[in-house]
């Protein structure tokens, strides 16, 4: 893969490299997460679950991927 085909993104504060053309659903799956159990924010905007499989990742995107943990 050449540099043209690699995108640089931030996920939960960590720098990651992903293949150009990846969808957000592919990104979530690649990390090893069940898309049904997480929510994704892209550049401070919620990505609706219904569009995870259609929205393409862009270079420089910043993602927050959250789930539920124990709390009071």
């Amino acid at each position: 893969m050449t540099a043209d085909h690699i995108l640089s993104v931030r996920i939960n504060g960590e720098q990651r490299r992903v293949a150009a053309g990846s969808t957000i659903a592919a990104l979530v799956a690649e990390i090893g997460l069940d898309p049904a159990r997480v929510a994704v924010e892209r550049n401070l905007e919620i990505v609706p679950r219904s569009t995870l499989a259609t929205v393409a990742v862009a270079d420089g995107d910043s993602f927050e991927i959250v789930h539920f943990v124990g709390g009071g």
Binding site: I11, N12, R16, I31, L33, V66, H67
Partner: peptide, 28 residues
């Protein structure tokens, strides 16, 4: 009650709350 936090993307295989407390039976 449950909290919303970042997933650990370095180790996504860790057990999660939903494996133990079923949100279909208990309201989150």
């Amino acid at each position: 009650t449950v909290a919303v936090r970042r997933v650990n993307i370095s180790d996504p295989s860790q057990p999660v709350l939903m494996d133990y407390i079923d949100p279909k039976k208990i309201t989150y």
